[in-house]
Design a protein around this nucleic acid. Structure first.
Lengths: 338, 338
DNA sequence: GTTCAGTCCTACAACGTTGTAGGTTCGTAG
DNA sequence: CTACGAACCTACAACGTTGTAGGACTGAAC
């Protein structure tokens, strides 16, 4: 079996508590004793039992990250960033997938017994909505990510969807585009990535005095590449005129770009294409895809920091905060002005 | 504070052990008692403390997954599949990133105290090599993934790199290609994805009686899209003649495709492009990328199942096994015969 | 009426750790 | 030489759970 404090104590000829103190860097230990203990620890290859430690201390050093699907690049890159950030705080990350927007699974997740192993949760819902805000009242530290729920009882780290989308559309307009198709629109949604980004888009149109055209709205629930491709195809077939495409995320835009080129439309000469998310992939498509980096790394960094703080100060009162990251329009070939 | 067995026991008027028995579905409990207890559990919202349970039982219900980087699509999709598979076994997954092939971090990982929270580990090294085989002798259940180390002391789940790569090259040859550039070659490597896939490639050449040309080898350590692009550019500039490109993974191939098209080379008319990994992305590039699906889902499924078995039968002797998945060449536009 | 197996339940100890309280030693100030 | 605080160390209890051993009851078989 694994060695315990007791084994080390016996070998070093001290009490287990002294060994514990050495392990935990307690100040008042005679150098000679510390040395003896460290030698015994090395000799036995002792490693603390984290279950016991966490039972005693109530802390596990693990945070949960609940997200829809890792196979969506945005979430994979987010998870990567979260794990790196957590590491800097001495935390490890347990990842739970809730499926692509499955509301009931998301709700279930919030009270999952599996969270017991966790000191707190980073929660990125996709299926839950504003009406579910009360469900965020949980007894453990929770930091909300994303744009499905606002004004909830917890800390919230999110991007400036509206402003960022507005900037994206403005970028297209400045390039001389007037008829901008939008991919990934969710019917009637007001809160949520789709709703907010569309709102930003419309603000940009309004400001430029461009009339909104319902026929340019590419409605589709899922935001995978396939959905972008199919929606684009539908719009082309509908015969409606357009000179630009704004994919509400990069994946949609990449799928669309493929279809545009198949249809003989040149990007950016005939149609400019803009994405949203700042995915790595967007750098390598043909042509390279213009996008908006919503501040993904900053989201991860901030979320972990805030969660770590809440864990640190458990029990103490605090005021929930909303953290907004800074975004950046990244202009690439797909929106170049000819 | 959270409620404990003790609270439930008090409310239900039974001993804590009886509550424990109810929770664990012990057989001999009077229906009336069970009901009383369940009611008390519901009333208090009791959830077992997993730290205590794991301290007592030695099991956490968590498995570790150590991989290079989630931002590499292959690993993101692998992690997705592993999490799904683990869920079917009632396990959750703790993900550790070892960085893109950092040998020392990988070695460190194997004895990380963080693994204490884990019943076993799925380990996918990239930097370690055959010489490190002894380091896999660890005291916890370990299942090795990937192709860096063979014949080690643990179970091993891997793909048929050689055969799959051979099939890929054969596919190109059957399309009439004779001068195949290879991207992602690692100098002098024999074991490892690069070495094995290159070996398969050469076997296919040999069988077809095509001479191997060193100048067609695109050497590059990292396998990101950028590396594929740069290596491709180097090969084009070198002036060596070629009519096909085999990216040792999809990401390299996608990066290369971009550069080929920029250089005015048509895919597949002038140059056929073949990838390896069966990434989702390959379905949506322009043109769509032919690839080899090495059986990723099967790898995840098998690895989790084997690990769960080893955990279940801890202590019992077993013979280590090597599991090979089935692969499939997926022909798409990038290798179409004109 | 006694025995016995089975059912149902309980008390206790243990898993390995850390917090608390307290004990001993030591050096220094009085 | 005594007093006293700081430094150093220890014993004990507790975190919440489950395994073990065993007690009390029931009903059936002799």
């Amino acid at each position: 079996m694994a060695t315990t404090l007791h084994d080390v104590a016996t070998l070093a000829g001290v009490s287990i508590k002294t060994v514990s103190n050495v392990v935990n860097d307690y100040a008042h230990i005679r150098p000679s004793t510390r040395e003896k203990v460290l030698k015994a620890i090395a000799e036995l290859g002792y490693q603390p039992n984290l279950s016991a430690r966490s039972l005693r201390s109530g802390r596990t050093g693990v945070i949960g990250l609940a997200l829809p699907e890792l196979s969506l690049s945005y979430f994979a890159e987010l998870a990567d960033a979260v794990i790196r950030a957590a590491e800097r705080h001495g935390l490890v990350v347990l990842i739970e997938q809730t499926g692509g927007g499955d509301r009931s699974r998301e709700i279930e997740m919030l009270s999952s017994p599996r969270l017991q192993l966790t000191d707190g949760l980073l929660f990125s819902p996709l299926g839950m909505g504003q009406d579910d805000v009360e469900l965020l009242n949980v007894s453990y530290p929770l930091v909300l990510l994303g744009e499905r729920i606002f004004g909830g009882p917890t800390d919230h780290v999110t991007m400036r969807n509206e402003e960022a989308a507005k900037a994206a559309t403005t970028h297209l307009i400045e390039g001389g585009r007037r008829r901008i198709a939008v991919l990934g629109v969710h019917e009637g949604e007001r809160v949520g990535s789709a709703g907010l980004r569309l709102k930003g888009h419309r603000e940009a149109l309004d400001e430029a005095g461009i009339e909104f055209d319902e026929r340019l709205m590419g409605r589709v629930d899922r935001w995978h590449r396939l959905d972008g491709a199919e929606t684009m195809r539908r719009i082309i077939e509908s015969g409606v005129e357009f000179d630009a495409v704004f994919g509400l995320n990069d994946t949609l835009a990449l799928g669309a770009m493929r279809v545009l080129q198949e249809a003989g439309l040149r990007v950016p000469q005939d149609v400019a294409v803009m994405g949203f998310d700042g995915l790595d992939e967007a750098k390598y498509s043909l042509p390279t895809l213009s996008t908006v980096d919503p501040g993904r790394d900053e989201i991860a960094e901030t979320a972990v920091r805030v969660l770590a703080e809440r864990i640190e100060n458990r029990g103490k009162p605090y005021t929930r905060e909303r953290h907004l990251t800074t975004f950046e329009v990244i202009a690439r070939e797909s929106t170049a002005v000819s």
